[in-house]
Nucleic acid binder design. Structure first.
Lengths: 290, 290
DNA sequence: CGCTCTATGCTACGATTGTTGCGCTTTATC
DNA sequence: GATAAAGCGCAACAATCGTAGCATAGAGCG
């Protein structure tokens, strides 16, 4: 039918428009099309099917459902998209050359990526293992992170809550910080996240830790960071960025990797707890139905 | 099989180097490869053959002659050249080969780094400019991000506060979300961050946006995300991770890059505002003296 | 309950894929 | 000028491709 060649944007728009009305299998297939447009043009239907966990037939039916006579017809705009001209290849080259204000976007991402590889290089397996050991031994974990470091601190608490209840974010509500620190228990541990210039609130935190003899796991930009000097272990990250703002994305990555490592070390029981938590969230209606 | 995967540039170089020594038919085929690299990846050998006026067999012989075991092996770098960056396959394969518990740390960082390059590839210059334009035009910006996406949402608000006052985080205090949405102004804009499975709270947000005719800038893992379907622009990020937890580090990086781009576009006046804010923080005693 | 209709998976079919072996033609060598 | 070697096309191969047909499962309705 629809015969003539449709532009990729047009086809993608049609798919997105029809998406809610599709059946579950057709929707899975359609989602895969918009999520992996490159693969659609490059590999066979059967490969697409196995990757998207759908039967090959579904793609034929999807093509028909969208008004194409053929799978080849639906696939064609995906191929044309890759042909020289408006290819993402050209876009990539553009991004490299583009000198406008938008260039800083790509530059930022590239710099942050470099920060990540640096983090991988500088944080050997020993530090990770040591940090995990400290945190596993602790009865309760307190996480400190202020200003821009509040985001990774929040993320660490959120992730670890998935498999242990006894982890809290320090300085949650206004002015409660000192009270929380006074209540520090002996068998607890502190994770302190920060980079230069260091937030003032970190001062009381490390001081309280020393007074109560509580170990500190630092996540900082330097071994010379005030928070790192009194820490048992320090995981380092770099905040390099082409812009005025230092980047905490690398700290974010470290936090995620740390949580993943702790989970992996905790064995299948903890993993099961995560699954349960997830199921409970689902039953709670925390997520939108797909 | 020639084993390792060769980069496209490398293969092209090898072809050009061998070109003079090839026989007439092989040379015709080889020339076609370097002249039409897109087609090599997109169509079958027989089509290639008829277009370059050569027999299909010649391509097989050419592959062998160049040191590849297969036509598929020679063709592979041509395919990879067209792939943007999405590597859901590599990540899954990595997960299968998981080694010690600590190895997952380095693996996480590497996967997240791949997510970043994918984000750079998939977010062309147009989307960034469009997103910035929308946000600059808005009188006020509301940022929505829930659960694990709260961290990047928080970061975006924090960063933008440095150079404009009129940006707020949605759903701050318990249950206030609906009230905030009811008060949505006409000339505002919404930034919505989310990935699958999508938080339930995003539903009311996009609905309110549509009702008030407020534009949405989505930061999501798919064009098919419910929040992306009603968005003016969508910046995409990937949440691939070797562990159970999806990663929001790439979203974090996008948020930082977006803030940096907005600042760069706003000219020196905004940059001056940032400097002032920073100075005020310092005078306030927000930072520890080094 | 029984019936219909849609959604989905399975199997098989013809077409097309990349590859091979054979034979013809051309080129180089003595 | 004979002979070996290499380049090349043709036809046939198994494998894989996209597709059609049928069977089953489940939802919706009377």
């Amino acid at each position: 039918m629809d015969g003539r060649d449709a532009g990729f944007e047009e086809v993608q728009g049609r798919i997105l428009a029809d998406l809610p009305d599709l059946s579950s299998e057709l929707r899975k297939a359609a989602r895969f099309l918009v999520d992996h447009p490159d693969e659609v043009a490059l590999v066979s239907m059967r490969v697409l099917a196995s990757r998207s966990e759908v039967t090959p037939t579904t793609f034929v039916r999807l093509a028909r459902r969208l008004g194409f006579g053929d799978w080849a017809a639906l696939r064609k705009p995906f191929e044309d998209r890759l042909r020289s001209g408006n290819a993402p290849f050209a876009a990539k080259a553009d991004a490299l050359v583009k000198r406008g204000a938008e260039a800083i976007f790509a530059e930022s991402l590239r710099t942050i990526s470099a920060n990540l590889t640096a983090a991988e290089a500088v944080n050997g397996g020993d530090e990770i293992a040591k940090a995990c050991a400290i945190l596993e031994r602790a009865q309760r974990i307190r996480v400190a992170g202020f200003r821009s470091c509040r985001a990774p601190a929040h993320a660490l608490v959120y992730l670890c809550r998935m498999f242990r209840r006894d982890i809290t974010l320090l300085g949650g509500d206004g002015g409660a910080l000192e009270a929380e620190l006074a209540a520090l228990g002996k068998r607890e541990a502190i994770v302190a996240i920060g980079f230069s210039p260091y937030s003032r609130e970190l001062g009381p935190v490390v001081e309280a830790a020393r007074r109560h003899g509580v170990p500190i796991v630092a996540i900082a930009d330097s071994m010379a960071a005030p928070v790192a000097r009194h820490a048992e272990v320090t995981l380092r990250f770099s905040t390099d960025s082409p812009s005025f703002f230092p980047s905490v994305a690398a700290a974010m990555a470290i936090v995620e990797a740390l949580a993943a490592t702790m989970l992996a070390r905790s064995g299948p029981a903890a993993a099961e707890r995560v699954r349960e938590t997830e199921l409970e969230l689902q039953a709670f209606g925390a997520y939108l139905a797909e």
